[in-house]
Amino acid sequence: MTYLSFIKTEFLVLWRRKQDVFNALLFFIIVVVLFPLGVNPSSDFLAPAADGIIWCATVLAILMAIEGMFKEDYTDGSLEQLVISGLSLSLLMLLKTTAQWLAVLLPLLLMMPLLAEMLYLPDGSFWVLIVTLVIGTPSLFLIGSIGAALTVSLKQGAMLVMLLMLPFYLPVIIFATSAVRAAQLGLPYLGLLAMLLAVFLLSLVIAPFMTAIAIKASTN
């Protein structure tokens, strides 16, 4: 096994299992639709809340997608093969998380113009929203991979992953939605984007390492 063959196979598996990615995206759309139907469909409510709704739905969809990230590898024994492959397990985990991130984020970004329109997202903040998604979601995937790795041996791990990981997602949600709101008010928002980037870099340093520890403990 080499890093290259690993990442190729990861993308191939993602492609064969594209229904899983679609499910996460459909879940995302349903959560978004809940707000106009359940709370208030008027633009007075939706316009100021749009960025918050989109971010909360994104977080939930990502948690749903990430929970099963290692499940199949665990049951078919390929996780064990990764552990003893002689390659760096942290790097393999980073590659796998990157593949998952790309598979979910790219279609999500494609849906954004439509959703922004449906939720009356105020003009001028759309591109800031896109930027927060691009630099904010990697942290969610990196941190979430730790939770997925810790619970991989459990049959019903989804709820536990949510409980474990949601508190860690708070800073990302706060900085991202604040940046969008600052942009709407014409305030400087680059500092907030820098905070998001800082959280991303910190997760990049720590998360693959922790995920590797968790995977190694789980495959015992």
Partner: peptide, 8 residues
């Protein structure tokens, strides 16, 4: 477990 991926 064989370490063989089912979808491939």
């Amino acid at each position: 477990s064989a370490g063989v991926k089912k979808v491939l």
